[in-house]
């Protein structure tokens, strides 16, 4: 499933498969929107679409960071806690304190960079598996936020108007938060696809040993992937604060599950080396849309989580099927060549 420097003919056939993988999500999305709209036309109204896009923006930023880590055959379970810590930091900075938006964004991302660096260094230099490290820091970062916040809560009326405007304002009808998410997506997507740095991440995920033999600085890239994931989780914390205005120590609790779900549904294999951030973002869009569609269709909200679970199983099952087919196809082609 990996398209790292394969000969041209193979790449084209693999590309078709990969594109089909993302096509599947798009189809599911179109179907979902069509069915929901038929039963209730208000579903495609401006307000409803805006809500979906805003919800997707936060999840997609997290999912892009997670995809970068998962592609290297690691995982970052701490993103929800990093989001919470960043949101509370930003809230505290802004509490009755008028700061421009840009330094606030940088501060949030900065908190994330520190958290991500802690994860990365423990994985790389401590030789501790990413699952263990980020499970641990999931607790630690959340605990720090609780220590700091206690039971206190930051309310929208304590935040400067300029910051809250940033959460609601639009540019030609598109909310700033969504534009920011698209920017993150495009930059990460291009770097992963076209730059050496990005291709090295795929190589590491396909085979860490081979990557090391090929001269890739696996350790540095691993730390880098975690720093990116942390920074984006921190950025998502700022988006969270801007969108909701109310921040307590529990902000973003349990998000890690949704993020991993979005990434897996988006076709990023948990064993690394394949998938794109586009897919991850589409996964985030699909999950968010399902949530809104259930409300519009007046289906019991309680089904949402069960559906997400079913989707994850469906997605990894489909990926498995595709992988088996591709492997069989390559084998057949290989026998022709030799």
């Amino acid at each position: 499933m990996t398209a790292v420097d394969l000969p041209a003919p193979r790449r084209s056939s693999l590309d078709v498969v990969l594109r089909a993988r993302e096509l599947g999500i798009v189809l599911a999305l179109v179907l979902l929107v069509a069915v929901t709209t038929i039963s209730n036309p208000r579903f495609v109204s401006g307000q409803s679409i805006r809500d979906i896009l805003l919800g997707t923006a936060i999840l997609a930023v997290l999912a892009v960071g997670q995809a970068v880590v998962v592609i290297t055959r690691n995982i970052d379970l701490s993103v929800g806690s990093v989001l919470g810590l960043s949101a509370f930091t930003v809230g505290t900075l802004l509490q009755n304190n008028n700061l421009p938006v840009l330094p606030v964004l940088l501060a949030g991302a900065g908190v994330g960079v520190v958290c991500g660096a802690v994860n990365g260094v423990l994985v790389r230099y401590g030789n501790v598996p990413a699952l263990v490290v980020t499970l641990g820091t999931l607790y630690v970062f959340r605990g720090i936020t609780y220590f700091w916040a206690g039971g206190s809560q930051i309310n929208a009326d304590e935040l400067p108007a300029a910051f809250l405007d940033f959460g609601t304002a639009t540019l030609v009808g598109v909310p700033y938060l969504v534009l920011l998410a698209v920017l993150v997506l495009v930059v990460t997507g291009v770097v992963l696809r076209n730059y050496r740095m990005g291709r090295e991440l795929y190589a590491m995920g396909s085979s860490p040993q081979a990557a090391r033999l090929a001269g890739i600085a696996v350790g540095r890239r691993t730390v880098g992937a975690f720093v990116v994931s942390g920074a984006l989780a921190g950025l998502a914390g700022v988006l969270f604060a801007a969108r909701f205005g109310t921040i307590d120590a529990a902000a973003g609790t349990g998000y890690e599950l949704n993020v991993v779900a979005a990434v897996v549904v988006g076709g990023v294999a948990v064993f690394g080396g394949s998938g794109t951030v586009w897919g991850a973002a589409l996964g985030a869009l699909l999950l968010t849309t399902i949530g809104s569609a259930l409300a519009v269709l007046e289906i019991n909200q309680f089904w949402q989580q069960a559906i997400v679970g079913g989707l994850i199983l469906l997605a990894i099952g489909a990926d498995r099927l595709v992988a088996v087919r591709v492997a069989a196809g390559l084998k057949k082609r290989g026998s022709h060549v030799s």
């Binding site: 995982i75 699952l131 599950l257 991993v260 779900a261 897996v264 948990v270 064993f271 019991n300 309680f302 089904w303 949402q304 989580q305 069960a306 559906i307 997400v308 679970g309 079913g310 989707l311 994850i312 199983l313 990894i316 099952g317 498995r320």
Partner: peptide, 23 residues
């Protein structure tokens, strides 16, 4: 039987079973 990675499968059933509990 399907040879899927257990981490992904059980994250999926984590959501599925909890969702069914709420249903």
């Amino acid at each position: 039987f399907l040879g899927l990675p257990s981490l992904a499968v059980t994250i999926g059933t984590l959501a599925l079973y909890r969702g069914l509990a709420f249903v």
